[in-house]
């Protein structure tokens, strides 16, 4: 979640109290103002120190490390962009990108549609809706590990899922995790089970649509389907954009479920070798610090380009409060 969190953060507006401090023009700062400034720095110091030590420092180091061949077995030598060119010749790298993108292509559209549909359903004003919301939002708090452990057994070729499929008339249900072809779809299925998490965000978006708009549409004679396509969908495009970005970034951060289902090496034939799992293997199991850092930076660049591209084209399809569409 972290990477997407700030996408919708409102622009920091100048604090109202600032004007008061400045209203008397450019005078020397009084003793009390100096004391306040000192207190401010002091109160903010945990984060200031943490930011420098745990974020800025490591980021700079990471760029440098990615240009070396530093590993457990050898001291670092500068190798330029070798790590980056090695990557594109590596079959394992290409495989992990394919696995991750397959998951994005199958999963993200499904999660978007299912999440929105569930949110629409949970937004109906019906008695007892609280109970349904409670049940359907429950997977949001469960850990990837616990959910994956449960599903690793549910998806056993002779397990409950395939038993249900046979009942529904599927004569030859998939082997899921034991079959490389069905491993990624299995992860998507587990993601669908947690659709409630996405629905929470869509539901908040739906509840932000001004009810007057529906009233006007009703008076104009628009049916519920027209109202959905003309009002609901355009009004929640910022939410859709946010979940789209989050979904793509989330695929590159997929770790827990892949690790539990496929083991540390990424499933049979690398079929669950998601990007982060590959990075972790190279960095922490094979001890290739330089190469793993380069992997991280490739992801940053790809994610950055993707986010900019989506945001750039979004003015064509994202509704904004004051701007013209």
């Amino acid at each position: 979640m972290t990477a997407g969190v700030a996408v919708n953060v409102p622009p920091a507006s100048p604090p109202p109290d600032r004007a008061v401090g400045r209203s008397s023009g450019r005078r020397r700062r009084s003793a009390s103002e100096r004391r306040e400034a000192r207190a401010g720095i002091l109160f903010a110091s945990p984060w200031l120190i943490g930011m420098l030590a745990f974020t800025v420092g490591p980021i700079v180091a990471s760029i440098v490390i990615s240009l070396t061949d530093w590993s457990l077995s050898s001291s670092p030598n500068f190798v330029g962009l070798d790590n980056y060119s090695d990557m594109f010749g590596s079959r394992d790298f290409r495989n992990s990108v394919t696995v991750t993108l397959t998951y994005v292509l199958i999963g993200v559209p499904l999660f978007q549609v299912a999440g929105l549909a569930l949110a629409l359903l949970l937004n109906l004003k019906l008695p007892g809706m609280r109970i349904f919301r409670t049940i359907l939002f429950l997977p949001a708090v469960l850990s990837g590990v616990a959910v994956a452990v449960l599903w690793s057994q549910l998806l056993n070729p002779d397990g409950p899922v395939n038993d249900a499929l046979r009942l529904l008339g599927v004569a030859d249900p998939p082997g899921w995790l034991s079959s490389p072809r069905w491993s990624v779809p299995a992860v998507v299925l587990i993601g669908l089970w947690s659709t409630g998490t996405g629905a929470i965000i869509y539901l908040a978006g739906l509840q932000n649509v001004p009810p007057e708009l529906y009233e006007v549409a009703r008076i104009d004679g628009a049916g519920p389907i027209r109202a959905f396509f003309r009002i609901t969908l355009p009004m929640i495009t910022p939410t859709l954009l946010f979940t789209l970005l989050n979904g793509i970034i989330g695929a590159f951060q997929m770790f827990d479920i892949a690790y539990v289902l496929g083991g540390s090496r990424g499933g049979s034939g690398g079929s669950l070798s998601f990007y982060l799992l590959y990075l972790w293997n190279e960095g922490f199991r094979n001890g290739r610090f330089g190469y793993a850092s380069a992997l991280a930076w490739v992801f940053v660049v790809v994610a950055g380009v993707l986010i900019v591209a989506i945001l750039k084209t979004s003015n064509r399809w994202v509704y904004e409060e004051s701007g013209e569409r």
Partner: peptide, 9 residues
């Protein structure tokens, strides 16, 4: 900032 880049350093 994607925290991937922070893992190794």
């Amino acid at each position: 900032i994607p925290w991937h880049v922070l893992l190794i350093p």
